[in-house]
Structure formats: structure tokens, C-alpha cells
């Protein structure tokens, strides 16, 4: 209290450690990354050399970058939609006090704590062409032949990766929506029932509007994580077969650490950062999400 600058009445004193951490690990790396994007590693000189705008020009003309951008966006839209719809459906199914439903809700939390890299391995095993359970089930229904490699076929590999994501994170949506559903007031539903509204009408006109804030938050948080997804593709396909599962995150990581194109990898990661910041802030503004 005696030292004016360090007085506990000053907010800055409380927030200083946080500010230092955020500056050291987000602002500094951001500027370092921008600096890096104007340089490139020269293997013969064994050092970084200034290349001006070359990396940025190369990136916008790089068809593989646009391809991986397309894959990222496709993955983003498909996985987010499936998790959203499936999550809402399961949440409404479990929003009941039947015997054992409390236990079921606890079981669903379990998928959330498995390391995504290990989930990737799990689905690598389940989708294995020679002894995978999923391959077996699909072959029983005649959808797939044994020995058809789901993850090594260009047309199905991305769907195989999506399955792991949907399995792990649909329960995330379910739990959030359940919390939302359980806190809804009963009166509008009673009124709707008296008016003889159909189940679909009740859902469209009452549940959805009342749940809009909860849905927006879930979509925002999940959307950010889906966009920056790295673990599943790294473990399951490494971007293959060919380039069919290259996401933006994986592409920039590999350019930096596998192909020693430090500057170009940094440029790609900045592009990914830019895209997600724009999308997320547009969404926050449009959906009026507030913290």
C-alpha cells in the first residue's frame, strides 16, 4: 500500500503477469513471424536471407496453398455442421430424466479428455483395411470391401479423418446444448402445447431462439478449433494420399519443419491466422456474442 506504483488498488498490478505472458508469447512471436515471412532460409549459406515480398507473392500463386485452403474450409463447414446438428439432436434426446440418463451424460464427457493424437491412432486402427472394426461393419453391409483402405484412398481419406473429429467433439456440443436446454423456462412450452403447436414448430419458434446464444458460443469455440485442426491429419494421413487431406495448419508446419522453408511456412501460418481472426470476428459481430 505504501509503494504507489505497486499498490493493490491498481488493476495493472494484478494484470501484469498476464500482460507479460501475452506480450512475450503472442505479440513478440507475431512480429517475429511477420519478420520471418520476409526472409527465407538459404541452404548453401546456412542462414536466413532477406527476400522481400517473395514469400507472399509465391503464396498467392501457390496452387497447393489454395488446395489446402479449400480442404480446410470444406472440413470446417462439413464437420461443424455435422457436430452442430448431431449434437442438438442427441442433446434433445438426452434432455429427460429417464433412468440412467445422468450416467449417459457422464459417459459422453469421456471422449473429450482423450488426447486428439490418440483419437487419431484409435481411428487409424478402427479404419484399418485388414482388421479394422469399421471396415468390418461396412463390409457386412456391403458398403465397402475388405482391404479397401479408407484413409489411403483419396476420395474417402478426408471423411475418415472427419469421423474421428465428429466422434470426439459431438459430445462437446451435446453437453453444452444440454446445459442450455435444461435451463429453458417451461412457460413458453406450456403455451405452445395449449395452442397445439407441432413438435417441429415448437423447436423452430421456441427452442432455437431461446438457445441462440448458447448455440453461437458453441459454434464459435468449436469453429476456431476445427479451423486450426492439426493432430488428426498429422497422425492419420500426414496430408495424404497425395494432397487430399492437407489442411492449412499441416501445410505450413510441414513447409517449415519438414522442408526447411522457414519463411514460407511462417507466411502460410500468418495467412491461416488472418483468415481465422476475420471469420471469428465477423461471427462474433453478426451473432452478437459477448463475454
Amino acid at each position: 500500500m505504501k509503494l504507489g506504483v505497486l499498490s493493490a488498488d491498481r488493476p495493472l498490478v494484478w494484470m501484469l503477469p498476464l500482460i507479460l505472458m501475452l506480450v512475450a508469447f503472442t505479440i513478440v512471436p507475431l512480429f517475429y513471424n511477420i519478420w520471418l515471412s520476409f526472409h527465407e532460409y538459404a541452404p548453401f549459406k546456412r542462414q536466413l536471407v532477406y527476400v522481400g515480398m517473395e514469400n507472399w507473392k509465391a503464396m498467392f500463386g501457390d496452387s497447393r496453398m489454395w488446395e489446402s485452403f479449400g480442404i480446410t474450409m470444406f472440413y470446417f463447414v462439413v464437420v461443424l455442421s455435422i457436430e452442430l446438428v448431431l449434437g442438438m439432436a442427441i442433446a434433445m434426446l438426452l434432455d429427460e430424466d429417464e433412468f440412467g440418463f445422468g450416467l449417459l451424460r457422464s459417459v459422453l464427457t469421456l471422449t473429450l479428455v482423450v488426447p486428439p493424437a490418440i483419437v487419431g491412432m484409435m481411428y487409424l486402427l478402427i479404419e484399418d483395411p485388414e482388421f479394422g472394426v469399421l471396415t468390418y461393419v461396412l463390409s457386412l453391409f456391403g458398403i465397402l470391401d475388405k482391404s479397401t483402405p479408407i484413409l489411403a484412398t483419396a476420395s474417402t481419406a478426408l471423411w475418415g479423418v472427419m469421423l474421428a473429429d465428429v466422434w470426439q467433439w459431438t459430445p462437446f456440443m451435446v453437453l453444452i446444448f444440454l446445459a442450455g436446454l435444461r435451463s429453458l423456462p417451461p412457460e413458453p412450452y406450456e403455451a405452445a402445447m395449449l395452442d397445439g403447436a407441432s413438435a417441429w414448430m415448437t423447436f423452430r419458434r421456441i427452442t432455437l431462439p431461446l438457445m441462440s446464444k448458447v448455440i453461437a458460443v458453441a459454434v464459435l469455440i468449436r469453429g476456431i478449433d476445427i479451423f486450426r485442426m492439426f493432430d488428426y491429419v498429422f497422425v492419420m494421413t500426414s496430408g495424404g494420399p497425395g494432397t487430399s487431406t492437407y489442411t492449412l495448419s499441416l501445410y505450413s508446419w510441414q513447409q517449415t519443419f519438414s522442408f526447411i522453408k522457414w519463411g514460407y511456412g511462417a507466411t502460410l501460418s500468418l495467412f491461416a491466422l488472418f483468415v481465422i481472426i476475420v471469420i471469428a470476428n465477423l461471427f462474433i459481430w453478426a451473432a452478437k456474442v459477448r463475454w
Binding site: L36, I224, A272, I277, W291
Partner: peptide, 23 residues
Amino acid sequence: FVSWVLSTRMMPPVAVAIPVFFI
């Protein structure tokens, strides 16, 4: 400030990992 904290949650890990590796 709260928005800034939230926006750091949006950064793709790869955009942090690359510069932090060199630092």
C-alpha cells in the same frame, strides 16, 4: 482487454509454434 485475451484463443497453434521454435 477481454477481447484481446479472447482473440489470443483464436491463434492457430502453428502460427505460434513456428516463431516460438526459433525464439
